[in-house]
Computed example of a mutant assay.
Amino acid sequence: MRADGGTEGAPIRVLIADDHPVVRNGLRGAFADDPRITVVGEAADGRQAVTRACQGDVHVVLMDLRMPVMGGVEAITALRERAPDVHVLVLTTFDGESDVLPAVAAGATGYLLKDASTEDLARAVRAAHRGEAVLAPSAAGRLMGQVRRPAGAVLSARELEVLALVADGASNREAARRLFISEASIKTHLLHVYDKLGVRDRAAAVGEAYRRGLLPTR
């Protein structure tokens, strides 16, 4: 075993998930001369990424967050359930808190911006393969700021969207249709909301959210 986490003669197997072919080609090229990393596949959306990563020969997925069919956060959640040994390194152009927190909460091992250097990207892939957390400086700063906030529930942007629809009387099916995600994802988001707010049902979650000022008053 090498010090960088790989096995001698066995490169880290990477799957690239991004809906832009130019980006996928660029990332594949970035690893072309690195014998420690090999790209074993590509995916143009989150669903393809989950299906391909579950085939058993992927160590690390480079995951974009904003993709069609299934977004990156939902794909990360699915991978944590179906392929827990696969590490996900988010690679995106967005570094807002609404992107960082859900991705990390869903189980991403690391988070880098697409302007990272080839050297930083390779180091991040090796660290992710070892299970080490890797965060872009801007993302790390936001997460530390979140940790330092006063105690209390912090709902992700998606959780707030789901809760707002529930507050308006939407069923799980209707919320899923309006947000273009599955009913199972709606249920998962609601369970996370219940846990964070310390409640047991939809009505209590809506009431508590209004009490805490998480939803705008009517």
Rank of each mutant, 00 (worst) to 15 (best):
A175I: 12
A128W: 01
A176G: 09
T118M: 06
G131E: 05
D201T: 05
L160H: 02
H129G: 15
L179C: 06
R177S: 11
L101C: 05
N172W: 04
L101Q: 10
R66M: 13
Y194H: 11
R13G: 03
A103N: 04
V60P: 00
M70V: 08
A167H: 08
I12Y: 05
V125I: 12
A140W: 03
R123L: 13
A32P: 00
T7F: 14
V58K: 01
G207P: 00
V134P: 00
Q146P: 00
D57A: 14
L160Q: 11
Y194F: 13
A44V: 07
E8C: 09
L165W: 04
H189P: 00
L214Y: 00
G145A: 14
E174C: 03
G169V: 11
H129L: 02
L112M: 10
E159P: 00
D99G: 01
E132W: 04
R82T: 15
R28I: 05
E119R: 15
E97T: 06
V104A: 03
P84K: 15
E183N: 11
T188H: 12
H129I: 02
S182L: 11
P84D: 10
V154P: 00
G29E: 14
M70F: 03
E119H: 10
Q48R: 11
S98Y: 05
V58H: 01
A43E: 07
A44E: 12
P11A: 04
I186Y: 03
V22S: 13
T7H: 13
L89A: 06
V88G: 01
A140R: 14
V104C: 06
L112W: 05
L165V: 05
E183P: 10
D85S: 15
A116N: 11
L91W: 08
R2F: 09
R13I: 07
N25W: 09
M144R: 12
E183I: 13
T38P: 03
V193C: 04
